[in-house]
Design a protein around this nucleic acid. Structure first.
Lengths: 121, 121
DNA sequence: AATATATTTCGTTATTTGGCCAAATATAGT
DNA sequence: ACTATATTTGGCCAAATAACGAAATATATT
């Protein structure tokens, strides 16, 4: 039950749900997620660690960057199932569609530039 | 997205999840749910109204009692799907199994007696 | 009508959560 | 080793949440 409620708690926040949805199909650097959500880096880092503790994302560190992705490999079915539920339920969602659009723009910009932009503000 | 996060927020609490799970297969009077969760009537009433606002339960009033049940009829698929996910994920859960056992005992007792017991304490 | 009963709403309190900034911790390049 | 950069952690504040008891509401029963 802890596993499950950990998951529902992780999903009980708009920004975390948006972060999850935007990870569909590719991994993203933390700074790209920061850029999308438009929150302080520390805040987004915290959100992502909540998602990770719930088993809803994986992370890998490469050089200076941390990449997040949906979990692959040997995952409990309740994780894949709830992700599938979310994906289906929010596929047509207005906010999510906006996010997907904006992500396309973000992905055109070099990581270094995105990160540096965030240091200033 | 509001619909969905409303649901995940409703599910982000142990007692509400227990209440939902115990509703599988039959409707229950509020006082029976109170008895199971062992919380103040006002607290349980509040929990149930959160579940209802999220569309995860229905209620019907009969005489002095309010009966709650899982929603039937014309329900968005994201509701049935998330309920199915929960059911599967928690089917073998220790707490849930205990609850099912205890519910059997509770259901043997007459509603009036259960309610009256709660007034005293 | 008056009383008893079951549930809900209100007001309060303690805890949790989400946000930020500043400081700490990696990691890469000089 | 030092500096710059990306992320995480700790400390703080404001807002949200879960719990309770008391009062209000709705529904029999007398």
């Amino acid at each position: 039950m802890n596993n499950i409620v950990n998951i529902t708690k992780a999903l009980a926040d708009d920004n975390r749900v948006r972060a999850l949805m935007i990870l569909a199909g590719h991994e993203l650097c933390l700074c790209q997620i920061i850029e999308l959500l438009n929150l302080a880096p520390s805040t987004v880092s915290r959100h992502m660690s909540i998602l990770r503790r719930a088993g809803l994302v994986e992370s890998r560190k490469e050089n200076r960057w941390v990449y997040y992705s949906l979990p692959k490999g040997n995952i409990p079915s309740y994780v894949t199932d709830v992700l599938e539920w979310l994906r289906t339920a929010l596929d047509k969602d207005v906010q999510i569609k906006k996010d997907r659009k904006r992500l396309k723009e973000i992905m055109k910009v070099d990581l270094e530039i995105i990160c540096r932009r965030q240091m200033k503000s």
